[in-house]
């Protein structure tokens, strides 16, 4: 059995899924931003042995 017709339930769940998707996308962007901020910090340094 397939649910071919658009049901009201699908609309409601779409809003929830969209909200969660946007939150996850924002989280990915934030972690990326944090990474850039951390590696740009003057205190951030990789020791020579680790670098090699």
């Amino acid at each position: 059995m397939s649910l071919s017709r658009q049901h009201e339930m699908h609309k409601r769940r779409f809003s929830r899924n969209l909200g969660l998707g946007l939150v996850l996308a924002a989280f990915v962007a934030l972690v990326f931003g944090l990474t850039i901020a951390k590696v740009s910090d003057d205190d951030f340094a990789v020791t020579t042995e680790e670098a090699n």
Partner: peptide, 19 residues
């Protein structure tokens, strides 16, 4: 069937949490 899905109130779907 699809028809049974329309009785969402019976299944409690109307009270399903939103975002």
């Amino acid at each position: 069937s699809d028809a049974s899905l329309n009785t969402s109130k019976v299944q409690g779907l109307e009270d399903e949490a939103t975002f």
